[in-house]
Design a protein around this nucleic acid. Structure first.
Lengths: 300, 300
DNA sequence: TGAATATGCTGCAAATTTGCAGGATGATTT
DNA sequence: AAATCATCCTGCAAATTTGCAGCATATTCA
């Protein structure tokens, strides 16, 4: 294989039609240009420029090479453009892995604000299928609902959130209002599909009352919320979802309360990048906006 | 501007996931690899690989670069091919990725002919596990049964083929001849394993009659053909398979007919290489030989 | 036509790049 | 648990690449 970098000098000479001007634009000595050109011709076993004196004009093979060299050039330029210096600029792409409910109810409403603040950063929300896979680098950072232990990851606690039982007024009217956790055994319960509970922290029902199992199940908390709101049954929801939906009523708030934490997880080496910091700060802010919701509940 | 040649070592490391194996494939010392990688990272001012121990996994920035580096690579490879020495001679290797049934029944019978016509070209048939992976260069070109959308690939339609229901005479004698698609619900059906249907275009049974599911399943169309021929049941087969096996009888040809297309896919840069053109032409010919089969069916 | 300027090639020294050996660390096998 | 293997980083010498100066030749402009 020839030296790919020689394509760069080939392009310069093909465009300048002379070695010396090409040398000036590249900032390399003309001698070097000539030698690398010769090396390339030898490696390709082809005459790229006409031999005669005067301007260097391309041979047929040279023109063939030109097309490919230009492709390579645009690839290299694009690479430079996209990758270079992203580390220090407040721009670029950040891929944030979040749980569906958190993304929908906490982050999505603030995305416009983030974009106004950091127009250069493209923030992608990818819904987590469970956990951030650090080896695959599916995401640059992740907000997780359970603290990960393994791996060389940077972990930071962003704050707490509470969960309560929720139901719709229609359901309560139809089947009555349960007074204690044990009453839930006779209710239609809505929860996660057990096989897809990737962390014991998500098995809320069992924590409310051991042995409790959901009758209507979904891997999606949003679908669960919809089911509860439609009066299908009772389920556990984070307050940042349940308190914002007027169709939902919290139940047994004094007897059943679950507390969990948000964890910000990222690759250690990204911690200092400007755009990562910007996103992390914004996340902290978003989560801080949840506190009033919590306080409102306490006041009731 | 960074040294374009460093993209080559970057690609090697990204693929080998380690410096040492990459060094072996490139024939350069591992130290040099590491140093040039470091130089590239400095030039791009970006971390390309994970810092920790173990395998070198790409960072987000590295993955961005990978895409561009691959473009540059295919340009460089094409340049080498086209320009180098005896570039226009019909020789070299072509790796063609094909679906199993197509390879077995359409291409394999004509391989001898191809070899006589182009003794200098070594044509490898690799069975596709679904799609052509352009990044790994597993194949130079591919005949696909579904049109790929993504990537910078050259796509060309080679022609159409039809599929019908097939069964063996023995099976029909034993359980009777179904007269309409709905009758198939009572038959033993043979088809693909749903989990491995990588493209909706392959879900033939559902197209014959919605909701139809196979009882006997295989990821291999050849095995399906064998099952049908042995009288195990009824299945959908391309005519280029079914019509050539005397043990198979087409069913309901006037009521159930599925049409699909063959797509020729290749790296854009290779399009013009002589040996690629030779293979593409031959593929077109092979597919054109299918038309009489189709016509024969129509005449019946 | 002739002078002025520019191009491009050949030696030589400087700078850079490369490979090798040795040793620390981690992974794999017995 | 020990041993073996492989990976990968750190100095140092060799090899290659690069730049500069000088000169022959070509091009340009008056």
């Amino acid at each position: 294989m020839f030296d790919w970098d020689d394509l760069r000098v080939f392009l310069a000479v093909a465009r300048a039609r002379k070695v010396a001007p090409a040398a000036r634009t590249l900032g390399i000595d003309g001698t070097t240009i000539a030698r690398r050109l010769g090396r390339l011709e030898k490696a390709l076993d082809a005459q790229l420029f006409e031999v005669g004196v005067g301007d260097r004009t391309l041979t047929a093979r040279g023109r063939e090479l030109l097309a490919h060299a230009e492709t390579a050039e645009s690839a290299a330029l694009a690479a430079l453009e996209e990758v270079k210096g992203q580390e220090h600029r407040l721009s670029g792409q950040v891929r944030l892995s979040v749980a569906e409910g958190f993304g929908t109810w906490v982050l999505a409403p603030g995305m416009g604000d983030f974009n106004r603040r950091h127009p250069g950063i493209r923030l992608d929300l990818v819904t987590a299928s469970g956990f951030l896979n650090p080896s695959n680098r599916e995401a640059d950072m992740a907000v997780m609902l359970a603290r990960p232990q393994r791996g060389r990851l940077t972990v930071r606690r962003l704050g707490d959130y509470r969960l309560h039982l929720y139901a719709s007024p229609a359901y309560l009217e139809r089947v009555g209002r349960p007074g204690k956790p044990a009453d839930l055994r006779d209710c239609t319960l809505i929860g996660y599909v057990p096989e897809f509970i990737f962390s014991p922290e998500l098995d809320y029902l069992d924590e409310v009352e051991p042995g409790l199992e959901a009758n209507l199940r979904s891997t999606s908390i949003i679908m669960q919320q919809r089911m509860i709101a439609e009066g299908a049954g009772i389920g556990v929801l984070p307050d940042f979802i349940g308190r914002r939906d007027p169709a939902l009523m919290p139940l047994m708030t004094d007897r059943v309360e679950i507390t969990r934490s948000f964890w910000l997880v990222m690759q250690g080496d990204m911690r200092r990048l400007a755009r990562i910091v910007a996103v992390a700060d914004w996340l902290q802010e978003r989560i801080d906006t949840l506190k009033p919701i919590d306080a409102a509940r306490q006041a009731r």
